[in-house]
């Protein structure tokens, strides 16, 4: 398991990285390398030129400004887990990061790579959807910001245009009356999800004022379970409603069949994970 040959450049700035992407056909960005290098070693993916963005200043770190948290794309999973800001204002990201891979992989893998890779099995995309995150992107034409909702277009396919780099992610700080949950079913530690679900709710007393449900690995890309959200919005959640929500989620799923399970199992597991996340989210909205 050895990658084929490529050239390597350690970018010094975002502009340098973009220039190298433009100058070298089929060049790829190298972030944590924990999706890219395994694929190259298996020769599923061949890149003649790698632009390493690990040395670029300013792509790392977590800050809060008002009710917006900004996370640099090169922030690793371990850094998410260790962050006091996230622990206090967006614990959903901490919980999700803890369920990604294993300690060593989390030391290298970045949130930006996890989002930009477009792998439906990755955990952050569904979390981004639930958080209604905004993605800050730099390209040859400058900076743009787009919502995560609509970013994930298919397997290994996102709204990133050629030569663009995801530089930061903006998520809202949790306010009182909001709650969240992430549940992931996996075969073993270090495995991608059989199914996962990230949920953010805004409560108005007992009533769900708003809800966003993101689903992991049950479609060609991370998806929002919008029909299920519609069922809940404005309601009090009880067992009967949850049953209906589960059905709506099963209907929304279109998973690939693999050794983790067939369509039926994965879709049902998405529903179970969503139910657990909804209950958890409502529970911690009360706190």
């Amino acid at each position: 398991m050895i990658p084929s040959c490529f050239e390597y450049h350690k970018a010094t700035s975002i502009a340098d990285a973009i220039a190298k992407l433009q100058d070298n056909e089929d060049a790829k960005l190298l972030a944590g390398g924990h999706s890219l290098l395994p694929m190259m070693k298996l020769r599923f993916s061949e890149a003649p030129y790698l632009v390493d963005i690990n040395g670029i200043e300013g792509l790392k770190g977590i800050s809060i400004d008002g009710d917006t948290i900004t996370i640099g794309a090169m922030t690793t999973e371990s850094e998410l887990i260790r962050s006091d800001i996230l622990q206090q204002y967006c614990p959903l990201l901490v919980e999700a990061a803890k369920l990604v891979a294993d300690p060593q992989v989390r030391n290298k893998g970045t949130i930006g790579g996890d989002v930009a890779h477009g792998d439906p099995g990755n955990d952050h995309p569904a979390v981004m959807l639930a958080l209604d995150a905004q993605l800050v992107i730099h390209g040859p034409d400058g900076e743009r910001m787009i919502p995560a909702n609509g970013f994930f277009l298919g397997t290994y396919w996102t709204a990133l245009e050629e030569y663009e780099i995801l530089v930061a992610i903006k998520v809202p700080a949790l306010t009182s009356g909001t709650g969240h949950g992430y549940h992931k079913l996996k075969r073993k530690t270090g495995d991608y999800a059989v199914a996962g679900s990230a949920v953010v709710v805004e409560m108005n007393g007992d009533v769900v004022r708003d809800i966003r449900i993101g689903l992991t690995n049950v479609a060609p890309m991370a998806i929002r379970a919008e029909a299920a959200e519609d069922l809940i919005r404005g309601k009090r959640v009880d067992d009967v409603l949850l049953k209906a929500v589960e059905k709506a989620i099963v209907a929304a799923c279109d998973p690939a069949v693999d050794l983790r399970g067939d369509e039926e199992y994965k879709s049902h597991m998405a529903a179970i994970m969503a139910r657990r996340s909804i209950i958890q989210a409502i529970e911690n909205a009360k706190e």
């Binding site: 075969r187 073993k188 530690t189 270090g190 495995d191 991608y192 693999d258 050794l259």
Partner: peptide, 16 residues
């Protein structure tokens, strides 16, 4: 043969 890497072939970790 489906599943011939340690992603699929089950070697339990500390956790399981």
């Amino acid at each position: 043969l489906l599943g011939n890497t340690l992603m699929d072939y089950f070697l339990p970790t500390f956790v399981e």
